Amino acid sequence: MIDQRIVAAYEGMLGDVERITVPTRFGDTFAAAAGPVDGPVIVLVHGSGANTAMWRVGEWAARHRVYALDIPGEPGLSADNRLPMADHVDWFDDVLDGLGVREAAFVGMSLGGWLVLDYAQRRADRVTRLVLLNPAGLGRMRVGFALKAVFFKLLGERGLRMSLRAALGEVPPAQVEYLALVFRHFRPRTDVPVLGPLALTMPVLAVVGDHDAMLDGSLTARRLRAEVPHARVDVVDAGHLLPDQTTTALEFLEES
């Protein structure tokens, strides 16, 4: 069960968004929505240990209808039901159908990147464009980071904060306490498989941090360039927690 202290802190961070609950076969899904109801749809999908608060939804919504989804089983407001990875395709179908959305552009960060990549492979007719931010699944987690995480765990509260900085890179001070609260009471997924060969037809933008301590950004970039030659792949001076990519993503999503 998601710790209620995490839920309370998250509720305070949501801001001025429409709050929608979508029934699915896997339990209720929470969506933070904003923007004109007749605008082209963007679906935002966060990473593990996160929720829709990471997106600042209103900044995406000037000309788009935006739905930021809380992944089930993550520290948000959706059902506390961690799904097998392959079941997220049916979950996306249920959510889109429940929202009355036929097709959308998808933006995924880390775990969310894996989920939207897999969905785009299996439901290409429902994905108009794809934005991947340090996506998981194109290479294994770095072994060095896993060893560091074990060491930091031995250092208690100080180690927790060191681990956050090691995993994510530069963390804004305002987020440190919230992230520490989350990872004090929540265990991120470790069962994220490497995806097989990619066959994507829609326009794709990927932004990869070249100092990502968790994922092999160079391998991610190489795979995307080799297997999705039409993709735009930006490698930036950042770790796993990328600097704000909203403007870059929106410019890509609005290209004719």
Rank of each mutant, 00 (worst) to 15 (best):
78 S>R: 09
137 G>K: 08
52 T>L: 10
60 W>N: 13
128 T>G: 10
126 R>G: 02
141 M>N: 11
137 G>D: 07
81 N>D: 05
155 L>M: 15
107 V>D: 00
149 A>Y: 03
89 V>H: 03
90 D>R: 09
70 D>Q: 01
135 P>Q: 02
40 P>S: 04
91 W>C: 10
63 R>G: 14
158 R>T: 13
47 G>P: 02
101 V>A: 01
50 A>V: 00
68 A>H: 03
38 D>M: 04
97 D>N: 14
122 R>A: 06
41 V>Y: 05
130 L>A: 06
78 S>E: 05
137 G>L: 06
132 L>C: 09
66 V>I: 04
143 V>C: 03
80 D>F: 08
116 V>F: 11
64 H>F: 04
138 L>E: 05
73 G>L: 06
116 V>C: 09
71 I>C: 03
118 D>V: 02
88 H>F: 15
106 F>D: 07
94 D>S: 13
54 M>V: 14
151 F>Q: 10
62 A>K: 15
51 N>Q: 15
158 R>L: 11
104 A>W: 06
146 A>K: 11
146 A>Y: 00
142 R>P: 11
37 V>Y: 12
113 G>T: 01
61 A>L: 14
145 F>K: 01
88 H>L: 09
137 G>A: 13
115 L>V: 09
63 R>V: 13
139 G>R: 12
133 L>A: 07
142 R>L: 14
151 F>D: 08
148 K>G: 07
68 A>T: 03
132 L>Y: 08
112 G>R: 00
69 L>R: 01
99 L>V: 04
94 D>T: 06
145 F>L: 10
65 R>V: 10
138 L>D: 05
154 L>A: 09
127 V>F: 10
47 G>M: 02
110 S>K: 01
36 P>Q: 10
92 F>Q: 05
66 V>T: 07
131 V>A: 11
45 V>F: 02
59 E>F: 04
99 L>M: 08
98 G>D: 02
60 W>F: 13
95 V>H: 11
130 L>H: 12
89 V>E: 14
123 R>P: 10
119 Y>M: 07
